[in-house]
Design a protein around this nucleic acid. Structure first.
Lengths: 204, 204
DNA sequence: ATCCATTCCCGGACCATAGTCCGTTTCATC
DNA sequence: GATGAAACGGACTATGGTCCGGGAATGGAT
């Protein structure tokens, strides 16, 4: 947890001179929060307990992370960074090297799995991932759509492809309707087919 | 507010003998909540204030509506019922009488507008509409897809079409990215085109 | 019509937890 | 070591949600 693991870390303006106690407390909070999430689930992380177990005051949490969602987002960013690395430089078909169409399908399936794996944490992080993490997904899908020669309003088309993978819908489909994940995967790939316009040529 | 306006009202099992004071309090709460939402916005409706202004105890609210989301959902169901009526028996192209393809586009545009109009209330109602209201949308779209001869996993395809119209995404697109509504409408229609497979024949 | 017993509801005190505020403490620099 | 700026921390507030003793509504018996 020594590395904040910020996805798309901005080139920090100069050196805002982070005070050592601030950095130490931030690390302690992030580390403690991650452990609590791993051991007891996101729902068990209350701000009072987090402050107590990290050995800091409650006000410090809010100064560093703004609110509870901020804490959860920071914890989530760790695994989100892993995901982004897999997409940007991991093995195909998720990473580069595979045809764009295969990468798109792999992305949807991988993102679905990643979301389901941490669904409680993502929800605790405010229903959505951090803005940077979300933007990453849109940009990647948009990039693949360009490679596939899709024309239209690509940013919104990419957002529409990502929308069925958001937490509330997935939760309803899996926990209420009890749909198997394989069916969700298949349906997403079908959707991608239709958006790309590959329903007839690529899949038959 | 004398009519609860339940969408898809179930054929109530016999007469559960709703006590008169219970019904009276329910009406008072619903009426007061609707007024507060209209006058001050959903975010201003705290349970304490609602109880005080409706002249009931706080416990009564939770007995009747379960939680805050339940209250908001009940308020929302009023306008949701209007929407459903427009779809089921209103004038075309939203209502019956127009070609299925026109109805689908009209549905998306109308739903987008309806969501934006009450976006705060919908969010306060738990991010999503009530289960019944959501199911209505899915069933309607699914029905139109059948009429259009679309094949595949229609329930999930319908859900995927509705997903980009959910509140969190719309909020980001409009309040953060400042995209004009017309562009969202156009993009949704384009998405529908692609899903239906009408991109080439019906629109050129 | 009145009374009684039962059932269900009422209501506000109480609890848990997110988030704020500001006097006190610590850090980095001179 | 002095000093100003920044961070700390815990008491405080706001609010969603729970609990349970008291009381009203209802239906049957007299």
């Amino acid at each position: 947890m020594t590395t904040p693991a910020e996805p798309f870390a901005l080139p920090m303006a100069d050196q805002p001179r982070v005070r050592s106690d601030a950095a130490r407390n931030r690390d302690a909070l992030l580390c403690t929060a991650a452990r609590m999430v791993a051991e007891e689930g996101a729902q068990a992380v209350t701000m009072d307990r987090l402050a107590a177990e990290a050995g800091v005051g409650k006000g410090t949490i809010f100064r560093r992370f703004g609110n509870r969602c901020g804490v959860m987002t920071a914890v989530l960013d760790e695994s989100e960074a892993h995901f982004q690395t897999s997409v940007m430089s991991g093995p195909p078909p998720l990473g580069p090297g595979a045809p764009a169409y295969e990468r798109l399908r792999a992305f949807g399936v991988a993102r679905l799995a990643a979301t389901l794996q941490r669904i409680d944490l993502i929800e605790a992080a405010g229903g959505g991932r951090s803005h940077a993490a979300y933007t990453f997904g849109v940009l990647h899908v948009r990039h693949l759509l360009v490679e596939l020669g899709v024309e239209g309003d690509l940013p919104l088309l990419a957002a529409a492809l990502l929308a069925p993978l958001e937490v509330p819908l997935l939760r309803a489909q899996i926990e209420v309707q009890h749909l198997p994940v394989a069916r969700l995967e298949a349906a997403w790939c079908d959707l991608a087919d239709r958006v790309v316009g590959a329903r007839d040529q690529a899949r038959g």
